[in-house]
Design a protein around this nucleic acid. Structure first.
Lengths: 205, 205
DNA sequence: GTTTGCCGTTGTCGGTCAGTTAGCATATAC
DNA sequence: GTATATGCTAACTGACCGACAACGGCAAAC
């Protein structure tokens, strides 16, 4: 029989894998449970292993596996249910006609890849690039970026912002907002770490 | 089981090929990961080859091939493959960290419904509403719209445009661009037919 | 034909990180 | 008092990671 904490641990492992496709490490589990000690977390892992609920490859990072439960049901989704027809370009002079058999787009296939995540944007610093307060941006994790890419930059390990990046000759980094009422800021390289770059943006009305 | 860095490497190779049609070289992978050493990158490549996830033609530049994953059997369309984790809101003061609140978003479920379609936007008439030249808009077919909704209006059965709509007291219709260099236009009701209203917008970078 | 430079390959070195184990402390239930 | 669950710190080990150096193949530049 599991204790509360053990059950919480198992639940977290479950949803973490669901979400990320790979298992968490002890530290991540600890953060979720509010435990700072990896040793304590490890004791839970051990207990769950004894109960035969997980499998652990000893020594390896992220070495936790779930023990198979009932194989998940198939989710038979026929393809067209997941696509939107692309009716063409809207430009002066042409009505949008009956949408025949033309191109379709599957938003998931278009945007969803491992290593990507979504953020809701707060603030107006990128409005001139068409990224508005409340918009969602699709980011891809990475540590470096080329000039003029839009990135999430973490400054002094504290403040995260969405900005356009310029890698200066001298190694410093300039973060440029797309809002003429704000000014670019220049930082030494050590102060800035990049957490991801933008690959998409969307908005619902 | 892959390490974090190995997974990031594989993801990058994947999207690089997707994007460019040819595989990246070590240096390019390194730049993406923030590594200056080709040797380190090479070790990842080796590991991925050992895991049978890629194939490498030894010695050649850009000699990486992806191993077909279709063959890898199950393709357990587990849900997370179609969702993106929502990492939270990006605002000053908070690093994007452990993706805690397990919210995820499934773009298809979010946007795809019967009767909707996608249009590519041409022109700048809606830039102040964050709809740029080249953006895609998701429309829902309908014949009427309330004030201030963004619609596709077909004028004189000829010209289709994306505009904000105002239904005037006298029955006429005003179409308002979101671009201060353009003026609203007023049409009699007979001249305008609405083909759909906006429900979403997206853009790829 | 030689040189130069890019690229992949291999190996080594030192630093960091994750998992593991053990010992100590506290609170609660029996 | 004893047992159990919980949490911490400290220390050990091996995996992992990144830099660097060196080599060979190849192609463009001279």
């Amino acid at each position: 029989m599991l204790t509360d904490r053990q059950r919480q641990t198992l639940n977290f492992i479950h949803s973490f894998i669901d979400e990320n496709g790979y298992p968490p490490k002890l530290k991540e589990i600890g953060e979720h449970l509010g435990i700072t000690s990896r040793g304590t977390v490890h004791r839970y892992i051990r207990a769950l292993e004894d109960e035969n609920l997980i499998r652990v490859s000893t020594g390896r990072s992220r070495g936790i596996e779930l023990v198979d439960e009932v194989s998940s049901g198939d989710k038979n989704i026929s393809d067209h249910e997941n696509t939107l027809p692309v009716a063409g370009t809207i430009a002066a002079g042409s009505p949008i006609e009956a949408i025949e058999d033309q191109e379709t787009i599957n938003l998931n296939e278009f945007f969803v890849r491992p290593g990507r995540f979504v953020l809701r944007v707060q603030g107006d610093s990128m409005i001139e690039d068409g990224i508005f307060d409340g918009d969602m941006v699709i980011m891809e994790s990475c540590q470096t970026a080329r000039d003029n890419e839009i990135v999430i930059a973490l400054i002094d390990q504290e403040e995260a912002t969405l900005k356009r990046i310029i890698n200066n000759q001298d190694g410093s980094i300039t973060l440029v907002p797309a809002n003429s009422s704000m000014k670019p800021f220049r930082y030494s390289a050590e102060r800035v770490s990049i957490q991801g770059k933008i690959v998409g943006q969307f908005r619902a009305y």
